[in-house]
Design a protein around this nucleic acid. Structure first.
Lengths: 133, 133
DNA sequence: CAGTATCCAGGGTGATACTG
DNA sequence: CAGTATCACCCTGGATACTG
């Protein structure tokens, strides 16, 4: 079993790195925030509790699958609460938890930098593309 | 040509949404930051200029392809500068631009929130998983 | 109303090999 | 040293259909 030792060692190194990497709190946060629907839902919920169908309408373009999946993730992370009212038909309300609300200033900071500087980024892109035509 | 009108309308709606979505500055920023290697490289470069091979060593785990690809993207976005010294062998230095540096406080803010609250997120996850065993 | 289940295509990532 | 080129895999995420 001496064959493939080199490849195995590389794999091992990568697993170690990936494990370390996955442990990084900032990485986890970025992974969450960068999800296509997370910030959209968080922003929608920042204005108050919303029902499932409200969200699917407000966040136009989201599929049922992704809406449910994203909400489940946010609930699991303790950022959003899910309240079920067993009426007929059922009613489910989603709302930001305090933890979720504590995240909003950061979302605002991101928005702020983006609005202040993304134009520069665009311009840099155009310059780069023009230079490398 | 009346068939498939409903499906076509949905597609159209999605295209419109995607286009709008892609225009959002915050989204673009998040797309950039959430790239697996971007923050790692930015952080590495925040301590001063680095050569290509330095970066590949410092940011262990990155493949040549992704290192080059990510650096090209950052250069295109005007966040990083690339300086080629035509010696033998060639030498290439990468450094943060002022625009790139202006992004670092935001990266720090993300790190800060993550370090302050990701533990709560972890705890929430454990609770959720335990409840839904 | 608020989901769940299944299928499937496309893009992003890494491994590998080669070059000025 | 600092890349470029090609290929193959996996996983995300949308479409669709069904349910308490």
């Amino acid at each position: 079993m001496a064959t493939k030792t080199a490849a195995e060692r590389r794999d091992e190194a990568r697993r170690v790195f990936d494990a370390y990497f996955a442990e990084c709190p900032s990485r986890k946060l970025l992974d969450t925030l960068s999800d296509k629907w997370v910030t959209l839902l968080l922003t929608a919920l920042s204005q108050g509790p919303r029902r499932y169908s409200d969200l699917s309408r407000r966040v136009a373009g989201v599929s049922q699958k992704m809406l449910t999946q994203t909400l489940r993730g946010l609930e699991r992370d303790g950022l959003v609460s899910r309240t079920l009212t067993p009426s007929v038909p059922v009613r489910v309300d989603y709302a930001l938890t305090p933890l979720g609300e504590s995240l909003m200033p950061l979302v605002a900071a991101i928005k702020s930098w983006a609005e202040a500087h993304m134009e520069d980024v665009e311009a840099a892109r155009d310059r780069y593309d023009a230079a490398n035509a």
